[in-house]
Structure formats: C-alpha cells, structure tokens
C-alpha cells in the first residue's frame, strides 16, 4: 500500500508545480522559471528544518513566501517581454537558479556530521518526516491538504472577478488594457501566486526525497511544470491534476509492465496526446459535457 501512497505523494507535488505554471499560463505567459522557484523552496525548507531545526509547517510557509518574493522580483523585468522571448528569459532564469545552487555551499556541523547544501554533491539527510515518525500515509495526506487548498484557491479565482481578469489578459492583452486593466499588476500577481505554489511544492519535495541536488531542478522539470497544465487543458484546475496523474501515474508507473517500451512510449504518447487533444484533456467542450453530465448549473463559469 505504501507504494500507492508514495505515488500519490509524487502526483501531489507534481500537481502543485503544474498549478504554479497553470495560473501563469492563464495570463497567456509561458514560463519555464517554475523549476527555479521550486528549487528555491526546496533548499529553503530543507535548510530550515535540518539546519535551523524548524518544524515543517513554518518551514513550508517560509519556502512559499520566498518562492513568491523571488517570482515577484523576476516577474517585473521578465514580464516586459512576451511570447517566445519570455519562454527563453524564464528558461535562462531557471537555469540561473540551478547554477546558483550548483555553486552554493553552506554546511554546518550537527552531531559530528556536516549537513547542508554542498554544491554539486547536493544536500542530504532532510529526514524530517521519518525522524518524526510520519508514515507514508501521513505524508501523503499532509501533501494532499496543500494540493486541495491550492486547487480550491485557483478554482475560486476562476469563479471570481480576478479569474476573469487573468483570462482577459490571456485572451487579448490589448483589449484587456483598453478596458483599464493594469497588465503588469495582473501578470506579476499571477507570477507571484505561481511562485508561492511552486516554492511550497519544492519545500515538500525536499522532504519526501530527503536529498536534493541542482540537477533535479533542470530544464526537464521546468518543461514538465508546463506540460501538466497544457496536457490537462487550461479550462479547469482539474486538468492539471489529471495530467499529473496521467504522466506520473500512467506514463511513468503504469506502463512499467511494458519494460523497455515504457521509455520510448513516454515521449511518443505526449506527442500523440497533443495531436489528439490540442487544447488539453479538459478543453471547453469536454468541461461543458461534464457539467451537463453531473447536472451542474451550465454557464456558471
């Protein structure tokens, strides 16, 4: 059973990083910087629990806040460019963060053992969960509390004026600007919320893997952060969740019985999914159909 709980942990954290890219994508911005915010969160939370002896909750809060601060600081200059320029700027930023941690040493002796980040050798023994007797199920439930909160927050945004504003900017910047929306404020606020969610996800990641190193936060992770909302569709937060389940649950773990074919199919199925459902799993017609199916109020969104 622990295996399923563990898998649910992974899906939960990947959903978080997917959601962080989702809210930025709503404003029409493609950001590859999410892995950078994730890395910041991971190192901050890890250092706080291991080196400063903090409890997990304040440490995660700190990583979310720091993720938000970094994202906000990056958002101002970076969001001056858009489209593909932004993709590459954010990619460069994410790589910059990775390279920072690649060069980052801060070790403190604790109980005769040196702990803390050590450049390319990484940061080991972030064992808050096992040391405090948390079972795999406890950790999973803990993670899913945050996933649920983040999803609820974004879901609520979608139903509020703020969500409409985000989507308005995403659909047509010029039109949005001409009705008096402050583009910079909207985009930077989305980036900041995304940074907080990514930082939180990173903080959790550091604790369930117990060891982090710069190489885990590379372009591949940044691309996957984007892949979840794109594969899932921008119509609903549930799309991101579905896509994280599809990638981590199905492509990675579910196809294991295929042996060597699993890795080949991984890329191929992503290509196929985008060809079959270019607007993602949960696109507008599907969402509408689902709403009818469950007898919800159509047109509420």
């Amino acid at each position: 059973m622990d295996f399923y709980f563990g898998l649910a942990q992974i899906i939960g954290v990947h959903t978080l990083i997917g959601l962080s890219a989702y809210i930025v994508l709503l404003t029409g911005q493609v950001s590859l910087a999410q892995a950078g915010f994730f890395a910041v969160g991971a190192y901050v939370a890890g250092m706080l629990t291991v080196l400063a002896g903090w409890a997990i909750l304040p440490a995660l809060a700190a990583s979310a806040v720091l993720g938000a601060v970094v994202a906000c600081a990056v958002g101002f200059p970076a969001l001056r460019v858009k489209g593909l320029m932004l993709v590459i700027v954010t990619l460069a930023f994410g790589e910059g963060v990775r390279l920072f941690f690649f060069n980052f040493d801060y070790q403190v002796a604790k109980g005769g053992v040196k702990l803390g980040p050590l450049g390319s050798e990484g940061f080991r023994q972030i064992r808050y969960f096992p040391e405090n007797g948390w079972t795999t199920m406890d950790v999973m439930l803990f993670i899913w509390v945050f996933v649920t909160l983040a999803m609820a927050l974004l879901w609520w945004f979608d139903r509020s004026r703020y969500g409409a504003v985000l989507r308005a900017v995403g659909e047509d910047e010029l039109a949005a600007q001409s009705v008096g929306l402050n583009l910079t404020a909207v985009k930077v606020s989305a980036m900041t919320i995304g940074g907080a969610i990514a930082g939180l996800g990173g903080g959790i990641y550091a604790h369930y893997t117990t060891h982090i190193e710069h190489a885990s936060f590379g372009i591949l992770l940044a691309t996957f952060a984007l892949a979840y909302p794109i594969l899932g569709g921008l119509g609903s937060v549930f799309g991101t969740l579905l896509a994280a389940m599809f990638v981590q649950g199905f492509l990675v773990e579910g196809l294991r019985f295929l042996g060597d074919w699993r890795n080949l199919l991984f890329g191929a199925l992503i290509v196929l999914a985008m060809n079959v459902r270019p607007k993602g799993f949960l696109d507008a017609p599907t969402l509408l159909g689902l709403k009818r199916l469950f007898g919800g109020k159509s047109g509420a969104a």
Binding site: V30, L226, A227, F266, G267, A268, I270, V271, A273, M274
Partner: peptide, 28 residues
C-alpha cells in the same frame, strides 16, 4: 507529428508536442 495536425492557433500544443518528440528521439 508535431505541427501538421495541430491547429495553428494552438502554440502551446505544438510546443509540448516538440518536447515529447525531444524525449522520444533521445530515448531512441
């Protein structure tokens, strides 16, 4: 595989499809 069948108005889908293709080529 990545451009022909995906509507032109959908840059995100082609972007992701080419990522899939990158992973596929690497793995082959």
């Amino acid at each position: 595989t990545c451009f022909h069948f995906i509507p032109i108005s959908n840059p995100l889908a082609t972007l992701m499809a080419t990522v899939g293709m990158l992973l596929l080529i690497d793995e082959i």
